[in-house]
Design a protein around this nucleic acid. Structure first.
Lengths: 297, 297
DNA sequence: GTAATCCATACAAAAAACGTATGAGTAGAA
DNA sequence: TTCTACTCATACGTTTTTTGTATGGATTAC
């Protein structure tokens, strides 16, 4: 039995005539007679009672007609849904993001969902090297991470570079801007990945390049913890500016670095030369178009 | 899209390998590759992610797999059910029966249902000519009727001939047997069809053949009414013997006709040279085998 | 009785599916 | 690394299936 045969059969059942059904199906009449016969032979039963002028369904034929109609509907439905999923119009998209980049997410998710309302999201977070592993193991399809990162396995879409700012306790007497060299006098606190090379090393190296010996009193993988420590007056945190919108700044003061030497780069990454779902592709396109729009401003 | 292609696809999805799936399907590997490709082309989407050693379903592939599995089950189910109905093992069988033959029914229905427990019944009643019309218009597939009847449109299975008996009020002084000629003295009551020629004419003609002028004081299409009239002492009813088991004989007395001149014939009838459902055919076979068994006694 | 319809069959052409042979790419072992 | 083993994809010829054309038989409408 065949889907085509079922279509033929239902056409005959509805037209009650092979000739008319053949016209409707845009085929000649004899093949349709034959297909009906072969279906009847295969089932070993008579589906139509051949009356003089028209064909009438037998009881078994009626049963098959009801089933076939239902089945054909289901088939159509399945094809449509599979196509939607395949075209990235529907499905679940797993994304990872480091917390310090999370401020990029909401706006873009909102925009994406306007265009693809059937796509839902599953978010994971972690530091960049963990997220890179998630991408490699397919736990997420793409991730928003801070560079540097070993990019051998990944394709990427760079996000706008991001200046580092200093975050000081509000209680401190705070200048409106800082020179980088002033930092060496202050107790610094930096983000540090649980493993791998990242921002921490970037900052330390940058400062050393300028013959500055930083006074790092704490490193921590979590920005919220870090900011709490600042709030308590322990020291000064150095963070990419884009990190801050996600956190409460109560009791804190952000101060830009006047001679900004340190910049942070972020990027959307995904597995290079491997299957990437359509919805992930569309998500990346969305990201891209938003960057372009932002550039245009 | 094709049922075969869905079968192929699910096999690949389950085996995660085209080679293994091809073995399972008893075909060579290349055609299976082709069929998969043609399915993917038709849908316009990738169903499997070609990994080095095995194929993994994409999200769209996973959706199709779930749908396909379900669809294939439904197809199997539909085929089985259609076959059952077509083989007469399942369905609704519409039967008509005149009340005076109803005593034939219960035993045979019981026996039939032992062999075909999924077949259910829809019973209609009426006089023989009405039932003949029901058969012609397909309101019932077969009917149990009293002859005579215009048999041009029908095939039939004759049932055992049936002697007429007289039914008298119990209160009357009743002989243990009657001569037919004694009937002419008595007030007779006969069944009479609402239209058409039937038992009534049969009886009247038979009596006239023997130079007996019957004294018919009532005719009535319904046996129950007729027997009520007898019970009240109005007269004597002449009925086929097989009619009586369906009715209460309280206040009545059945008396055989000694020189039984009048016989009634019944038959199962159905449309000649037209489609007859398998279940009806089986019902007729059952009837036949019961008659044979009864003859053998 | 004739024309018009409709279904079924016969046969040829076109399309689809299949099998064999073969090549390219990758994983695991030597 | 090289070699082997294994998998998938492609090319091409063969077989099977499906379709179209031509035609005959049966039935209805005029």
């Amino acid at each position: 039995m065949d889907i085509r045969q079922l279509r033929y059969f239902t056409a005959i059942a509805e037209e009650k005539q092979i000739t008319r059904a053949a016209k409707r199906l845009h085929i000649a009449q004899p093949p349709l007679s034959q297909q009906l016969k072969s279906l009847e032979d295969e089932l070993g039963i008579l589906l139509f009672e051949r009356k003089a002028r028209s064909l009438e369904l037998t009881e078994a034929g009626e049963v098959l007609y009801q089933k076939a109609k239902h089945l054909l509907e289901k088939v159509e439905e399945a094809v449509l849904e599979v196509k939607e999923v395949g075209d990235g119009l529907k499905g679940v998209l797993s994304i990872g993001s480091v917390k310090t980049c999370f401020s990029y997410i909401p706006e873009r998710l909102l925009y994406f969902r306007e265009n693809y309302p059937l796509v839902t999201f599953r978010l994971k977070e972690g530091d960049s090297s963990l997220l890179a592993d998630y991408v490699r193991s397919r736990e997420v399809e793409l991730a928003i991470v801070r560079l540097p990162l070993d990019m051998e396995d990944f394709s990427c879409l760079p996000l706008p570079t991001d200046q580092f700012v200093a975050v000081l306790p509000e209680s401190w007497s705070v200048p409106s801007a800082l020179q980088t060299k002033q930092l060496s006098d202050m107790p610094l606190m930096l983000l540090h990945r649980t493993n791998g090379v990242g921002l921490y090393e970037l900052v330390v190296n940058k400062l050393k390049e300028h013959q500055l010996e930083p006074n790092i009193i704490c490193d921590c993988p979590d920005a919220a913890m870090l900011l709490s420590l600042v709030r308590s007056g322990l020291g000064v945190a150095l963070l990419p500016k884009s990190t801050l919108p996600s956190f409460s700044m109560q009791g804190l003061k952000m101060v830009p670095l006047e001679d900004c030497l340190i910049e942070s780069e972020s990027a959307v990454i995904w597995l290079k030369d491997r299957y990437l779902s359509k919805k992930a592709q569309r998500f990346i396109e969305t990201f891209q178009s938003i960057e372009l729009a932002a550039d245009g401003r």
